[in-house]
Design a protein around this nucleic acid. Structure first.
Lengths: 131, 131
DNA sequence: CGGTATCCCTAAGGATACTG
DNA sequence: CAGTATCCTTAGGGATACCG
């Protein structure tokens, strides 16, 4: 193997690069359900079904899958209490908290801009309809 | 001041709500390609094919589709110069710039955490393989 | 309760070809 | 150059059923 392609320069870690860890992580984080899961956990710890109720519309399957991915990336911690009935708590790691904080800012911005976005969409759609 | 925070029912614009504009906008923004497109445009204006080269791996179809969605949401401006050959410049609106700034912070965080994330994944995968 | 496993269908998305 | 149109394959994701 030639080590020509990957120099010890780790700074080449650009999200624009196809096989980059950060790009993969960005995709994991910016999935339909993962962003909402992180946002929810940013407000506190949650048990599985509580989280499911919080994130409206998510199926068991997708929530489970999403949480596994986030746990794998080291953003979410899964804590199992072997009681009856079972109790599983999900919380954010330090990294997860930072990401969640960022997403919160983004969500706030979008919530505040909701009216403007709606207006923009209406204008755009009307311009296309009036062909 | 005297008034409390968000007493109005209008402010129930939560991203967690199923049919919320902000949730839809969050999904539009956090798509695989849209985040990268916004990130790229955060570095300056781009023509279609230049943008396509910048965002590695995106197809013509997806880039076109992504840009249309972002334009519709009022985050991207499309400027057509009717010359030969055609010249189309894409740039960010004020809102788009704010979103892009936020995504930049997130991307920086993930790029800086890439090693840790990789390590976390390795640990997670090994724990599952070692049954 | 907190999942996993399965089925199944839709929509995301890549490749290619063609147009202004 | 800057797309749109078409085709076709994959994977996202919902519903249901069942296990620890």
């Amino acid at each position: 193997m030639t080590d020509q392609e990957t120099p010890s320069n780790e700074l080449v870690t650009s999200v624009f690069a196809r096989d980059c860890t950060s790009r993969a992580a960005l995709e994991d984080v910016s999935t339909k359900w993962s962003s909402l899961a992180l946002l929810a956990l940013g407000e506190g710890d949650f048990r599985f079904n509580a989280l499911r109720r919080k994130v409206e519309g998510v199926s068991e399957k997708m929530l489970s899958q999403t949480l596994q991915t986030l746990e794998r990336d080291g953003m979410v911690t899964r804590e199992v209490h072997s009681t009856i009935p079972p109790r599983v708590e999900y919380s954010l790691t330090a990294l997860g908290a930072l990401v969640a904080e960022n997403l919160r800012t983004l969500a706030d911005l979008l919530e505040a801009s909701a009216d403007g976005i709606g207006a923009s969409r209406a204008t755009y759609d009307e311009a296309r309809a009036t062909a």
